[in-house]
Structures are given as structure tokens and as C-alpha cells.
Simulated assay, not measured.
Amino acid sequence: MNKLNKVMSEQVTTARQSAKDFFERGSVRQKFEELLGKKAPAFITSVLQIVASNELLKRADPTSVYHAAATAATLDLPLNNNLGFAYLVPYNDKKSGRQLAQFQIG
């Protein structure tokens, strides 16, 4: 397999990966632990609950969900739709044709 095919294969694998699988990576958990300390597991659980309850976010690129969640974590804002401090908002990126998630302050 040449380099280009390998890179394309890795991109397809990442694109098909669920947010849950993505957030189970050690490096992702470690990043949230650095940002939030002991609050990291609860924060990750809230992100996964939000994604699971929204069909558009389920289809969103997990990396975009990660970046949006990291923005909220950096600002120490809980992602809970009932509290309204911050939201994960799905949108369709017309350039790439992919479903993405973005951070929005409440």
C-alpha cells in the first residue's frame, strides 16, 4: 500500500469512527484531564450524552465535536442544554460536504 492510500484509509477510518470511540482514546481523555482535572470524566459523559441525543451530532466528524468540547472546557463552561451556558451545534460544511460540530456560547 503506498503512502497516499494509507493516508486516505486512515482518514476514512476516522470519519467513520463514532464520537464515543474517539473520546475513549487515552490522548483525548488526557487532554480533558489537563483542562478540567477531576471534572473531566463527568464533562466527557455530558458531551457523549449530547451527541447521542442529537441525530445531526451523531453524524458529525468526531474531531469537530472534540474541538468544540475543548473550547467549552477551556472556558470552564458546562455542556448541558438545560443549563444553557454553552452548546454543541451541528452544521453542514458546504465546502467539504461533511457534518461538523461547533461551539456556541449560551
Rank of each mutant, 00 (worst) to 15 (best):
M1I: 07
M1Q: 07
K3S: 08
L4C: 05
N5K: 15
K6A: 13
V7L: 14
S9L: 11
E10W: 02
Q11E: 10
Q11G: 00
V12Y: 09
A15R: 15
Q17K: 12
A19Q: 02
D21C: 04
D21N: 09
D21Q: 15
F22T: 00
F23C: 01
F23K: 03
E24L: 07
E24K: 11
S27Y: 13
V28G: 03
Q30Y: 13
F32P: 05
E34K: 14
E34F: 08
L35K: 07
L35R: 01
L35W: 01
L36V: 05
K39R: 15
A40V: 08
A42N: 08
F43Y: 00
I44G: 02
I44H: 00
T45C: 00
S46Q: 12
S46H: 04
S46G: 06
L48P: 03
L48C: 00
I50E: 06
I50M: 08
S53T: 06
S53W: 03
N54Y: 01
E55L: 05
K58V: 10
K58T: 08
R59F: 00
R59L: 12
A60M: 05
D61P: 04
T63D: 00
V65E: 03
V65P: 01
A68D: 01
T74Y: 09
P78N: 13
P78R: 13
P78T: 12
L79K: 10
N82V: 11
L83K: 15
L83C: 11
F85Y: 14
F85I: 04
L88K: 09
N92F: 15
N92L: 13
D93C: 14
D93E: 15
G97L: 05
R98H: 06
R98F: 11
Q99L: 09
L100I: 13
Q102F: 08
F103G: 07
G106A: 12
